[in-house]
Amino acid sequence: MAAVIECNNITHYYGNRLIYKNLNFSVEKGKILGLLGKNGTGKTTIINILNGYLKPYSGECRLLGEDMRSLSIETKSKVGLLLEGHVQHSYFNIVQIEKFYSRFFKDWKSEPYWDLMDKLKVTRKQKISTMSCGQRSQVALGLILAQDPELLILDDFSMGLDPGYRRLFVDYLKEYVTATNKTVFLTSHIIQDMEHLIDETMILDYGKLLLHKPTLEILDNFKRYKLSHDARFKLDSDDAIQNLEHFKSHTEFYSFDTIDRVRQILQRRSIDTQTLVNESLTLEDAFIGLTGKY
């Protein structure tokens, strides 16, 4: 299947600070990819590079097969963009903004927009600037759905949303995407609710891409291990064991490997593995396991 998004060897600096070096990834059609990372790891930077709002130091991205440095009008109309903070032209009311956008898109579908608007408790004459963050997110989402794009790029859509709106957003999006075979590229720094939504997870850390795997694979394989005594040992950089933490009464670490393999690794270091147990994780726990708490 053709890649909807393809990025090759993206390297970028802000001043002298390296954001990432030789970043490579691609997203296939029909997938929902979540780019997760802590604040300041360059999630929005990727979105900006994808849409041609930032000149990366080197490397190239292709969106629907087209170079991001000069996206054609046709490609743009096939990409729905949600900016960080659900930014929309705030001087419009919901009728005016629909009227404005509908003129730009051949396949504009008003129904999903109005479906969503009817759920909101806003009047038709209310300006977007007077709406709550949650309401604005629904307007922004409604506009993207009406645009009916092949690819949805959502930058930090969960920001500022209370749990109700976040759930509403996720459910609506999931239903829509599943029904229409759309591709979604989204970023978030809130991981809750995400495991129901995203098919693939990309986790960014400072300066590098930590991981890019199907979400299910992470949930199935990535485990937290506990030893009920304080075992001191050092990690290698390519160790199968990650994020070692020592507590007074026990030791915690994470790994993608099976419990048998982990036991072997520990025994090779002459560590007592009698008390070794593992437990399954939520995506949020896995995220912390991979990136650490700090």
Binding site: N51, K76, V79, L83, V87
Partner: peptide, 8 residues
């Protein structure tokens, strides 16, 4: 960005 993203 929204304005520049318009298919125009």
């Amino acid at each position: 960005k929204l304005t520049l993203h318009l298919p125009h």
